[in-house]
């Protein structure tokens, strides 16, 4: 039971990332009708916002010490972060909390990137076939990936969680288990809570604001909304930026779990598309439910007890579920009629 509960927790934090990426993908598809293969790159760029903030906070004052030499004979460098020498303990705290603080940078940066991407490239492909949209966005993802690699290198760059969130939480005690049976990393629980908050925020934004109402109306019938004199294109540009922000935030907070490298977006992209398809194309609720569901099933399938019965199931479970769901419900779990049909 403890083992199953631990795997469910694993699935929830992984599922949180899947759900956030899939949510953005669905928003873009539902509003603009664009199949965006560059969405994984947006997740990766969010993660590199955290890398950039950490790099900025740890910019160092370099003083050469001629009395000490490196192994290759040059004077030893004594390095002190500027922020530490300027702000003392506050500087140290800022470095320690660089990952959550990166959210402040990621929101405007990702919004700008999303809007620039939509205005600069994606909008020219609205009326083109999905195959062309996939090709151009996939090409864009590769370009972004290579740019990041040229700037940051190919190796993963560690981004530790703040010291206070590094330890383990006895989650089992909170739900009535014996102490020490279900202990789980604090940051992963924080990530799960963060992802549910962002998801709730996006739903609230679309449900309870005038802007959201227009966007939902546009998703249902773009032409009619246009006839009412509303500049739906401008609204949808902002929606693209919003989807980029959601993917970016997912990436920022995921960095202590997975050291970011240029390729991390691609790793999540394919899985997130499966999540969207299983959830139902264009269904926001479906994307969220499928994200968590597939995350949990992927974790449970990795248990040795399961693998002994079905060897290799952990590597194909997601795709197997997709096949079963599509056979039973061709529109996905919560898909709407008319979406991607005809």
């Amino acid at each position: 039971m403890d083992a199953i509960l631990l795997q469910i927790l694993n699935g929830l934090d992984k599922g949180g990332a899947y759900a956030l990426i899939a949510l953005g993908l669905t928003i873009i598809f539902g509003t603009l009708g664009v199949v965006n293969f560059a969405h994984g790159a947006l997740f990766m760029m969010g993660a590199f916002c955290a890398v950039s903030i950490k790099a900025l906070f740890t910019l160092e004052k370099v003083v050469l010490d001629p009395t000490k030499l490196t192994a290759w004979g040059t004077p030893m460098e004594i390095r002190t972060p500027y922020i530490e020498s300027w702000f003392g303990d506050v500087g140290v705290w800022m470095i320690d909390y660089s990952v959550p603080l990166s959210i402040l940078l990621a929101i405007p940066v990702m919004l700008f990137i999303g809007v620039a991407m939509e205005r600069g490239l994606i909008r020219y492909f609205y009326k083109r076939p999905h195959a062309e949209q996939i090709l151009v966005t996939f090409g864009l993802a590769i370009v972004i990936q290579e740019l990041v690699k040229s700037q940051f290198g190919a190796n993963p760059i560690p981004q530790p969680a703040p010291d206070t969130a590094k330890g383990m939480l006895d989650f089992g005690v909170m739900i009535g288990f014996d102490a020490g049976n279900v202990v789980y990393p604090a940051w992963r629980l924080i990530y799960f809570l963060f992802s549910t908050l962002v998801i709730a925020g996006v739903f609230a934004f679309l449900q309870f604001t005038t802007f959201g109402m227009v966007v939902r109306a546009g998703m249902a019938d773009r032409e009619t909304v246009g006839l009412l004199g509303i500049d739906i294109d401008r609204k949808f540009t902002i929606v693209f930026g919003l989807a980029a922000v959601v993917a970016g935030l997912a990436g920022v907070m995921y960095t202590p779990i997975l050291s970011p490298d240029y390729h991390m977006g691609m790793d999540f992209l394919v899985l997130s598309f499966v999540v969207v398809v299983v959830g139902g194309m264009g269904s926001l609720g479906g994307a969220v439910v499928a994200g968590f569901l597939l995350g949990i099933l992927q974790s449970l399938a990795s248990m040795e007890e399961v693998k002994q019965i079905l060897p290799g199931i952990d590597q194909i479970i997601i795709y197997l579920i997709a096949v079963v769901v599509l056979l039973a419900r061709p529109r996905g779990l919560m898909g709407r009629k008319g979406m991607m049909e005809g």
């Binding site: 403890d2 083992a3 631990l6 992984k14 992963r188 991390m264 790793d267 992927q298 974790s299 990795s302």
Partner: peptide, 14 residues
């Protein structure tokens, strides 16, 4: 290239 190894690490715990 599994990325997240949590599902393989948690069985080690107990």
């Amino acid at each position: 290239g599994a990325g997240d190894f949590s599902q393989y690490i948690t069985p080690v715990l107990n």
